[in-house]
Design a protein around this nucleic acid. Structure first.
Length: 235
DNA sequence: GTAGCGCGTCGGCAAGCGTA
DNA sequence: TACGCTTGCCGACGCGCTAC
């Protein structure tokens, strides 16, 4: 069975679509910023087209990035997970974005809920464990919903809590917060869920932790990530 | 200090156009 | 006819300015 290209029917070249989606998701740019930057390169499209592409291809690209990483045997570590949640306002209503991060700072899972209770924590935990399996230990803040949910799934003994232990998860919110600020706000819960999922995949893909490597290594990894991005959905 | 206002920018929607 | 894409507009919100 031959796989049909998701770019079929599109008038614009796939590399331009990939570029626009990468600009919008990876950097704190608005739809209109992307429109203007592409205009500078002689590409005439409207901000609505950028939104249309990102809606159409965001999840497809994110899924392919995840698949590629698994295929390259970059197994997601189950040694230690860090869980944390942040407030996100949608039309004046508080929602919660839950995140699971592994010990290397790689975002494993993002999930949006309206509440912060045991039920929400349980749903998030089950979703993460379904995809990545059971971790050896889970670091959380002192929100009691985590403990209650972990007792339900039978790994209550693996929980570690501490004021500073969870900085890794807290730090993972920073790029998201920067992005949220640029967008000014999210309008819908499903939009936030979608953006969080795609943003974490793209952030994982391009995040080279430049401080930990030599300049040469960093440049090599960055070029490899970009080259891989340019191949997305090209098969 | 703060309340009110106007402006600019944002994402999002609906309708319609152009093209294969 | 189906689909990609544009246009025009909307409501929400942040920010700066002004008056009190």
């Amino acid at each position: 069975m031959t796989k049909r290209s998701p770019f079929r029917y599109f008038k614009t070249r796939p590399e331009i679509i990939r570029l626009a989606v990468m600009m919008y998701v990876r950097f704190p740019l608005s739809l209109r910023n992307v429109e203007d930057l592409l205009h500078e390169r002689g590409i005439e499209i409207s901000h609505e087209t950028v939104r249309y592409w990102w809606n159409r291809f965001g999840l497809i690209f994110a899924a392919e990035i995840r698949r590629n990483r698994v295929n390259r045997m970059r197994s997601y570590s189950n040694w230690q997970w860090h869980l944390d949640e942040v407030f996100v306002k949608i039309n004046g209503e508080t929602h919660y974005l839950w995140r699971a991060v592994d010990h290397e700072g790689e975002v494993l899972e993002s999930y949006v809920t309206k509440r912060r209770d045991r039920k929400a924590a349980l749903k998030f935990l089950r979703k993460s464990m379904k995809r990545y399996g059971q971790p050896e230990s889970i670091v959380t803040d002192k929100l009691r919903s985590y403990g209650a949910a972990m007792r339900v799934v039978g790994n209550g003994s693996r929980q570690e809590t501490g004021r500073w232990l969870n900085n890794r998860a807290e730090n993972s919110h920073l790029p998201f917060r920067r992005r949220e600020r640029a967008m000014l706000r999210f309008r819908q819960m499903r939009c936030l869920q979608k953006f969080a999922a795609v943003h974490s995949s793209v952030h994982n893909h391009f995040n080279q932790e430049r401080a930990l490597y030599s300049r040469d290594n960093f440049k090599f990894n960055r070029a490899a990530a970009l080259s891989e991005w340019r191949q997305l959905c090209s098969a």
